[in-house]
Design a protein around this nucleic acid. Sequence first.
DNA 1: GTAATTGCAAAAGATTTGCCCCATT
DNA 2: AATGGGGCAAATCTTTTGCAATTAC
Lengths: 132, 132
Amino acid sequence: MKKSRNTRQRAVILNILRKSQSSHPTADTIYREARKSLPNISLGTVYRNLNFLREQGLVREIRSNGSTSSRFEGENPPHAHFHCTLCNSVHDIPLPESLQSFNWEEQPPISTINSLDLHVLGACVDCGAALV
Amino acid sequence: MKKSRNTRQRAVILNILRKSQSSHPTADTIYREARKSLPNISLGTVYRNLNFLREQGLVREIRSNGSTSSRFEGENPPHAHFHCTLCNSVHDIPLPESLQSFNWEEQPPISTINSLDLHVLGACVDCGAALV
DNA sequence: GTAATTGCAAAAGATTTGCCCCATT
DNA sequence: AATGGGGCAAATCTTTTGCAATTAC
């Protein structure tokens, strides 16, 4: 494990993500939130820390059709993401059990797998109702 | 359906994607390929047409952890994507049947779904072998 | 004291857009 | 002839990076 320091900036960012139950904030949203307690924090620092925390496995990056910029979340049990393409919200949904027990390694050309990202795009109940 | 013209540029781009069985090119790769037959085509035109073709449902955009820029593919049967994080290649793999028959609509807060994007990240057989 | 980390600003990379001209219909 | 679409370049947006100053250890 490479040497690292426990800075206030890093702690604040991790904390924001730990509290963000399912808001899946972008780097910029995290930046604006962090500024409330650290008015001088820079966007570059936010990005650097997000990358650091991702490498440590403490936060997860979510890049997908459905939004232009990356979103982030604190590490929590495996789950999938549902993106409402009408209101641009992102929700955690259970990862179907069948996917976790699936034998990926026998699927050519896969050798080993690190992660599964499942994104479901559609309309959420609120937006679906509003369409009627 | 909104009015549109059948330009040489648009045809070339669609053709590149139809032929690209599983190379999943980026906009820039498509641009360089298109220049072989249309030396004056611009990158802006490539992007405009990719967006147009995507809206028409003729091509699919692939945005995911695993690559910084969007990749594209011609429309073909539902499948998932496997990204080798070592050589940055992307391969089509079958979409597990269990996902297609899954009853998403009863999973709150989903109302209706449009698409499923499944990305499996890991090492491909070639890279896995090279690690030994 | 040393080196990791910050803030700032500039740079880089990806994608979009305004404008004027050209080509498809 | 009408106007959708193209080329070019500038603009925008997201993310990264170089550097000098700061701070955790």
